[in-house]
Design a protein around this nucleic acid. Structure first.
Lengths: 171, 171
DNA sequence: TATTGTTATACTCTATAACTATA
DNA sequence: TATAGTTATAGAGTATAACAATA
């Protein structure tokens, strides 16, 4: 099972430990990006498990949410808002269309573009989806310690995402 | 350029808007997982740009940090701590070894395992790497509004990551 | 039998170039 | 010329199975 040595192996350990002191290497747990990645992976993992029976992935969920709130958006608009390359959006939308959840409608004024909409079935699906999503989201609000903590997290993440980085105090 | 219609297309808009009211679809910006993903992508993107001249990816950085702090760890231990499958860790470690930054040492007591160490060159590399990393990390501390805000963010992320989810108020 | 490191492989995401039909 | 959608393709990152050497 576990090897008999509970203390770490001591090759040239002391030399390296000495070198470490000069380096002041950060604890990986204190690194913002590392922790953000762990948290994101955890939430997405929970999402995948929560939505396994609906066979819904995060990207598909976000597309359905967006066209439910803003029906009629052009395909490229939806893709750009979600940070999906329009080339990659095609297969995703094909899947939603094949499942009868969403549809492309040819625009009359611009025959190049498609406007996106939920189908009636997609609307019923969205109801189930959002009910399930609430349990998923609430799970993490609870872990955070309630709505205030959740709001604080969103606020801090928004600060990270704020494109107005005033490098100096000017502007 | 931009099409003449500034108001959204109004196909069966009113019907869909009515349906939306019943649905109460969340704003995608209010979804924890979505915002976490955006923030993580932003930080990693900044990391990639910051370290483009060192040709260092986040996973490689985390490995170097870990074996700088804890020299002698077994290959599988390092991989597991970072959430990397040991099969995928092989090529990553090959790369660090090929660049002369880290090395596998055959363990005397267990001839199956390798203990991982920085080379002297890897140590010098780590000094440069960490100096650069500090500027990267500080950039986001500044955006957050200082060290207190950064500590708060880490604390909230830790709550998300806490495996002790007390489902009820018991325990 | 179990574990360490390894190879091979497959699947998902993401990124880019180039095509078509419209504008 | 430029744009919307599409196709093809390549690269990362990640996941699993199976093997050899060793425990």
């Amino acid at each position: 099972m576990t090897s008999a040595e509970s203390s770490p192996p001591s090759d040239s350990q002391s030399d390296e430990a000495e070198a470490l002191r000069k380096l002041s290497v950060p604890d990986i747990e204190d690194i913002i990006g590392y922790k953000l990645r762990l948290a994101q992976l955890l939430v997405f993992q929970d999402f995948l498990e929560t939505f396994s029976e609906l066979r819904l992935r995060p990207a598909e969920f976000s597309v359905l949410v967006l066209i439910a709130r803003s029906p009629g958006l052009k395909q490229t608009e939806v893709a750009e808002r979600l940070g999906i390359k329009r080339a990659n959006f095609v297969a995703l939308m094909d899947g939603l269309e094949r499942r009868g959840l969403a549809e492309r409608r040819k625009s009359a004024n611009d025959k190049r573009s498609h406007s996106l909409h939920l189908t009636p079935e997609g609307h019923r699906f969205a109801e189930r989806m959002l009910a399930i999503w609430k349990t998923h989201e609430q799970r993490f609000v609870d872990r955070l310690g309630g709505r205030e903590a959740r709001d604080k997290l969103i606020e801090l993440l928004d600060r990270l995402l704020d494109t107005e980085h005033k490098s100096t105090s000017s502007r």
